[in-house]
């Protein structure tokens, strides 16, 4: 028994170390989102292994992205999508990869599919619409996934709104995305207006005016030149909603 005691000690040490490592891994795992992603599986043999192993992930992600251009040129949907998703998986905090992956899938791949099936003249219009919606939805899913990881969501929200309106023809959904983008600290000047226009177009005119007016009064009026184009749009809404004088935004000094 004495002969085996040192080996038993080694076994106990290894078991103890493994148990400690398991609990620490559970706590550390969320901090390393780049690994364990299904998106990496198709491309693991293509030099992506180095990035998975650790280190140089950004470089490998860049190389995967550049390679995806080759497949994009060839209109090779599976290859292009696999490499784009690989880039996203290797560097999930980069909004660039998510944004462009979502837009490529949402905007380009439906056209590739239509061409593959014989062209616009041959594929029925309903099928074309269905394909636009299908790939638009897939692109949106990618953008939604990216929003969970990327540090900066604003451009992803804008791209999602663009796809929702252009491909899914869902103005309400598009308005929701633009609203979230407008609420971001680095929101572009047009986000609020587009949100209001889409809500208006979806039939939520009163809600659109109420939100837009609040936005203009709290975030725009005191900035730069007071965003006169937005005020003009609000005045148009007030006219269409037939609001009384007291219900409208008070006249501004520079208005004629």
């Amino acid at each position: 028994m004495r002969r085996f005691a040192p080996w038993l000690l080694v076994g106990v040490l290894l078991l103890g170390a493994g148990t400690l490592a398991e609990s620490s891994w559970l706590r550390i795992r969320p901090s390393i989102p780049e690994i364990g992603r299904k998106e990496l599986e198709p491309t693991l043999g293509q030099g992506v292994l180095l990035g998975v192993l650790g280190g140089l992930r950004t470089v490998v992600a860049d190389i995967a992205w550049i390679r995806s251009y080759v497949f994009w040129e060839r209109r090779d949907r599976p290859g292009c999508e696999a490499l784009m998703r690989t880039a996203c998986a290797l560097d999930p905090h980069s909004r660039y990869f998510w944004e462009n992956t979502g837009l490529r899938i949402g905007l380009d791949m439906a056209h590739w599919e239509i061409r593959r099936r014989g062209g616009y003249a041959k594929v029925p219009a309903e099928t074309q619409e269905r394909l636009f919606r299908q790939y638009g939805r897939q692109g949106l899913d990618v953008l939604e996934e990216g929003m969970a990881y990327a540090r900066n969501r604003t451009s992803l929200l804008l791209a999602a709104g663009f796809l929702a309106e252009g491909k899914l023809k869902d103005l309400r959904l598009a308005a929701d995305y633009y609203r979230q983008a407008a609420d971001a600290p680095d929101a572009p000047w047009y986000a609020a207006r587009i949100c209001a226009d889409f809500d208006w177009g979806a039939g939520r005119k009163v809600e659109a005016y109420g939100w837009y007016r609040n936005y203009w009064e709290t975030r725009m009026r005191s900035k730069q030149d007071g965003f006169p184009e937005d005020l003009i749009r609000l005045r148009t809404m007030e006219t269409e909603l037939r609001l009384g004088v007291l219900q409208r935004i008070p006249r501004q000094g520079w208005e004629r």
Partner: peptide, 18 residues
């Protein structure tokens, strides 16, 4: 070659990768 990762991330990743 930084595709909008955030420049510091690219620099850090390259160096720590080495």
């Amino acid at each position: 070659f930084d595709f909008g990762h955030g420049e510091l991330k690219f620099i850090a990743d390259f160096g720590f990768g080495g």
